[in-house]
Structures are given as structure tokens and as C-alpha cells.
Nucleic acid binder design. Sequence first.
DNA 1: ATCTCACATGTGATTTTATAACGTTAGCTT
DNA 2: AAGCTAACGTTATAAAATCACATGTGAGAT
Lengths: 176, 176
Amino acid sequence: MIQYNMTSRKQSGPPQHETPVGFGPHAHANCVGDALASAEARCAAEGLRLTPVRRKVLEILLEEHKALGAYAILDRLRDAGFGSQPPVAYRALDFLSENGFVHKIERLNAFVACMHPGAHHTPAFMICRKCDAVAEATSTPSKGALGAAAKAAGFQIERTVVEAEGVCPACAETSA
Amino acid sequence: MIQYNMTSRKQSGPPQHETPVGFGPHAHANCVGDALASAEARCAAEGLRLTPVRRKVLEILLEEHKALGAYAILDRLRDAGFGSQPPVAYRALDFLSENGFVHKIERLNAFVACMHPGAHHTPAFMICRKCDAVAEATSTPSKGALGAAAKAAGFQIERTVVEAEGVCPACAETSA
DNA sequence: ATCTCACATGTGATTTTATAACGTTAGCTT
DNA sequence: AAGCTAACGTTATAAAATCACATGTGAGAT
């Protein structure tokens, strides 16, 4: 199994947009630990309460490193000894997504851990329809055709959902 | 109530992208009739079967001119004497969206009639969070930051979801 | 003309996703 | 300790989507 870095910051040539997080293997233990630590730090700094359930949900999403439905998360919460009714998961997910630690993938009715913690950003996602792997990039939809259309129409954009569905490199290879 | 044209083709200055459909009033009877006629024509030309249920669902969406959930559509189907179980609506919606006559708004779990019938396009939507009005524009997400990220990651885009949530001109005025 | 095969529809049941409502608990503030 | 607020646990229910299976229907083959 090849081993390459997940972010492209250190690679040869990503042009001028933010780290398009790639697919494939990477230093996962670090990635989980670092992200959790950074979430804790930010919560402390901003007076947000990263309670055990919330922390566990974030950990689950970081561990899995793919989009999980609320009920899949709930199963894991139950296994870990937390409450097992839907609101437990949904409330944690609400908190985490309001604060940018996780994002909802509308196309899948599922959730992923944020790959650009800390940064204010307008996320964009690449979703593999074969393996459900999800990679996060950043987009600037308000600067392209959509932004122009919004301006022309007098529409004030507050939030954008940008999701691309397709086939990830690994699955493309497998099927070939 | 002001009266302005819905398409911007005839207006002063939309740059070089396709007709960003605007919000607000327009010649609705024509719009519904024309769209239905054009759908019928295209189905005839391509050997697609625009059956009564399918036609009715398209008509409902054109009439309402906003995003409707499958169950809202189902209610109207029942009133019109069609079957009243969910699959009736979902199957018609599947057909219509596979063939580009309607689009699903993932953010709302709802459906709208296509405003660019006939054209192959990658739709983008502006959704008013106050009144749920939806305007359709076209986007070129594969040409911007997302396209670059996909290329860098080796991800093959097959389909994109682009939805902007915000406030439409009418609602912005009302609240002011 | 009728057979047949693919496609479309009707219906009941079920699954999946999400929220409402309400009491209890935990951590702060005073 | 009293009182406040945010978080949690649980029951119940709503909303969105699909499964499974019987029935109907229309176009081409025989």
C-alpha cells in the first residue's frame, strides 16, 4: 500500500488555493490526536464546552475518516457507554458543526470531521460514490459564476453547499 | 408589485454565463405552459414516456415555482386522483430528475422544476431561507478551485451539488 | 390477434433520518 | 445553599425514502 501525505501543502504543485485534502492513506494516529488536541485548545480559548459526548463524536468521525450517518455514530456512542437515543448524536453534531469541527454532507445525510480546523472557510467536498470516502477542499463559490448570478439577482449568500460526486483515485484504479 | 423579467438574457449586464434565473414575479402562465410543451416535445423526440403522473408532477412543480418536498407533491397528486403512496411521487421524481426536468435541492430534501430545460448543465441554486424560494443559475464548479483540487487529488467529478443559502431580494426588503 | 416482455403503476409495510417534548443533571453565579 | 443555564437522557413522533410484490399496459414479435 502506497503511503503518501494527505495534505498537498508539502507536495509539488497545488496552485494558490487552500490545501485540497487528498484521498488515501496517511499518518492517521497523528491526524486524530492532533485534531482532537487542536479542538480542545480552541474550545478552551473560546469558552466552548467540548463535553465527553461531543469529544467522542468528533473522535469517532476523525477515526473513521469518512462520512458517517447520525445513526452509525449513535451505534458507536452506545458501544462507548453513552446515551443511545438519536438526540444524543444530533445534539453533539449540531454543536460540532455550528463550531466548524465537523461538516454535514448534504448529499449523503452524513457527517465528516473538518480537515481545516480553525480556519474560517467555505468547504467543498469530493465524495466517492463507490467507497463513500470524502475529501475536503475549500471553494470560493461566491467568486465564480454563482457569485455573479447572486449579485445580478440581488441575492445575499450566507452559506454554500458545494459537493462533487465521482470516483476517487483508489476506486478508479480498482475498477480498471 | 414590481414586474420584471425572470431571465436576465434581456437585461443590461450578465457577463458570459448562462441566464441566472432571478427571483420575483414573471409571466407565470406562459412559463408553465411553455415548459410543459417543451418537455412533451423533448420526450417525444427522445422516446421518453411522459406519463400522466410524471406530467402532473412536473406541472405541480412548475405551478408552485418553488421547492416542494416529495410528500407535498404527493398530497397534490392525491387531490388530482393519482395514487397516494410515496413511491408514486418518488418514481415520477426519479424519472424527471434523471432526465433533467427537475432538480433535487439536497439542502431542503425538496425538488424544483428545471429552469433551463433542454440544456445540459450543471445547475446551481440560490435558496432563500426565509421564503424557500429557489432560483436556478448555472455554475462551472469544475473550472474553479474545486476543479483544481479534484485534478490535484486525482478525483473524477461526475456530478456536482452547488447550493447557496441566503436571503432573496424580496425578503431582504421586507425585513428592512 | 395474441403473446410476451419490459416498463409503469398501485399499495402495504418498513427503513432511515430527524425533531419534539419533558424531566433530570451538572456546573456556575450569587 | 438557591437559582440559573446549558447539557444530557429518554420516550415518542414526524419526515423522508425505500422495499417488496401484485397489477396493469403498450410496443414489438410470433
